[in-house]
Amino acid sequence: MKIEPSPCYSHSSSVLVMAAPRNSANESVRVMRDEENAKFEDSPTAKKPKLEGRYPLTTWELAAALGVFLIFSTGLFCIYWTMPAAEYGRIKLPRTVSDLRMLKEHLATYAKDYPAQFILGYCSTYIFMQTFMIPGTIFMSLLAGALFGVIRGLLLVVFNATAGASSCYFLSKLIGRPLVIWLWPEKLRFFQAEIAKRRDKLLNYMLFLRITPTLPNLFINLASPIVDIPFHVFFLATLIGLIPASYITVRAGLALGDLKSVKDLYDFKTLSVLFLIGFVSIIPTLLKRKRIYE
Rank of each mutant, 00 (worst) to 15 (best):
D99V: 02
D99Q: 01
D99R: 00
R101D: 03
L103Q: 14
K104L: 02
E105H: 10
E105N: 13
H106R: 15
L107M: 06
A108P: 03
A108R: 12
T109H: 11
T109M: 06
T109W: 06
Y110M: 01
A111D: 02
K112Q: 12
K112L: 07
K112Y: 03
D113K: 15
P115H: 03
A116Q: 08
A116V: 15
Q117D: 09
F118K: 09
F118M: 12
L120S: 03
L120M: 11
G121L: 03
G121F: 06
G121Y: 09
Y122P: 10
C123D: 13
C123V: 15
S124T: 07
S124Q: 03
T125K: 07
T125M: 15
T125D: 08
Y126H: 11
I127Q: 07
F128P: 06
F128T: 07
F128H: 09
F128A: 09
M129F: 14
M129K: 14
Q130C: 12
G136W: 11
I138S: 00
I138D: 00
F139V: 07
M140I: 10
M140F: 10
S141A: 15
S141E: 01
S141Q: 08
S141I: 04
L142C: 08
L142H: 09
L143E: 10
A144T: 09
A144R: 02
L147V: 01
L147Q: 01
F148N: 02
G149Y: 02
G149M: 02
G149Q: 00
V150C: 08
V150M: 09
V150L: 13
G153D: 13
L154N: 04
L155P: 07
L156E: 10
L156C: 11
F159D: 03
F159V: 09
N160A: 15
N160H: 00
N160I: 05
N160Q: 02
T162E: 05
T162G: 14
T162W: 05
G164A: 14
G164K: 06
G164D: 06
G164H: 07
A165Q: 09
A165Y: 07
A165D: 09
S166H: 13
S166E: 13
S166M: 13
S166V: 15
S166N: 13
S167I: 01
S167G: 14
C168M: 14
C168P: 12
C168V: 10
F170H: 00
F170N: 06
L171H: 04
L171P: 01
S172H: 13
S172E: 13
K173Q: 13
K173L: 15
L174T: 04
L174C: 12
L174G: 03
I175D: 11
I175T: 07
G176Q: 04
G176M: 05
G176K: 05
G176H: 05
L179F: 12
V180L: 11
I181A: 02
I181F: 04
I181Y: 02
W182K: 12
W182T: 09
